[in-house]
Write a protein that binds this DNA or RNA. Structure first.
Lengths: 122, 122
DNA sequence: CAGCATCCATAGGGATACTG
DNA sequence: CAGTATCCCTATGGATGCTG
């Protein structure tokens, strides 16, 4: 390492924690699902295919605690709750989306394929 | 989702797999450790603090299978093995590093802090 | 609708010991 | 040096059922 990211290698660096939240299986997908704007619980549940109530709940709570996602509950009946990225969350996603899009574009070539050439990008 | 990343939400989309490898706890750190160039097993082991032999081995094998990391063994004694990013891996990291750096810069403000303001970036 | 609580299975991952 | 093999444990996370 040329030191720019040295901190990430220390086990108790806060970045490790954030990284684990943000880069987790469901964390990424939930964040991506919110990049388009506010979404309700049910929408997220449907959008992020395969996620369970439990995982959606805990993922959202973690991201909220990290200050990346904001939760707004409306005192109505039936209940309505909306989730949105905070300014922090949006900054994060600005940097995450290019990565996501590259992965999406190249995933097919990678899985199993091994030595495929990158789809002329960059 | 405005559809650009729609594929990521389907459970059996290849991107899910790649994402899980690349965004995994040790996957990111190993990849980051390789962004400076070729590194030997021992160097990675020491550099990525906290990783075990087992995890380093399996992480490297996974990334190699994904075509992101290249393994070169030299038929010497004592053995020497070097790992490096493939062109694919480098493209990936070009998009990963900005994210990493942002996380490193903002992690302190996030963990626990919750609603901290982003460090004027973007 | 939006969740939290509970139970439970699996696999992620650590520690240790051994090998080419 | 660069791994592999084994044991074992905990935390992740799925399924189900209940509540405000």
């Amino acid at each position: 390492m040329r030191a720019e990211s040295a901190g990430a290698f220390e086990p108790n660096c806060p970045s490790r924690t954030v990284l684990d939240h943000v880069m987790s299986k469901w964390g990424v997908l939930v964040l991506v699902a919110l990049t388009d704007g506010t979404a309700r619980w049910g929408a997220l549940r449907r959008n992020v295919e395969g996620i369970s109530d439990k995982m959606l709940a805990s993922t959202l709570r973690t991201l909220e605690a990290d200050g990346l996602v904001e939760r707004t509950a409306y005192p109505e009946v039936p209940p309505r709750v909306e989730y949105a990225l905070t300014p922090m969350g949006e900054q994060l996603m600005e940097r995450m989306m290019p990565l996501m899009q590259w992965v999406l574009a190249n995933a097919d070539a990678m899985v199993g394929a091994g030595r495929a050439q990158p789809a002329s990008a960059s």
